[in-house]
Amino acid sequence: MHGLVLALWIANVLLDTAGQLAFKAAAGDERAGDGLARWRYMFARPWIWTGIACYVAEFVVWIAFLSLVPLSEGVLLGSINIVAIMIAGRLLFREKLSPLRVTGILLVAAGVAIVGAGS
């Protein structure tokens, strides 16, 4: 794999993982309350903005990545993000990883990889 492609791919995995964790940190804050007040609370704090910034940067990186690699390979590599976010959720939010959950997540990741490989 070309160096630039590899760098863009790693950047994509890191930005996707960081962005989703930031969104979870914003959305999971129990002090935020409900309804419109919850949105006011979230937008007054940095986590949701961190997530949005990661998402925008990821979009640029993804477009650059796809200019070098066919979309099908991009989809194939995207399956890694699912596993990365599962592990990060376990480490940072202590999410329970029961055998059935791990099986489900790995099946989805495998399915996404197969769709990418077969396109």
């Binding site: 599962m86 990060a88 959720g89 999410e95 329970k96 959950r101 997540i105």
Partner: peptide
């Protein structure tokens, strides 16, 4: 939870 939700 973010892990299963992102997969789903």
């Amino acid at each position: 939870p973010i892990g299963p939700a992102f997969a789903a």
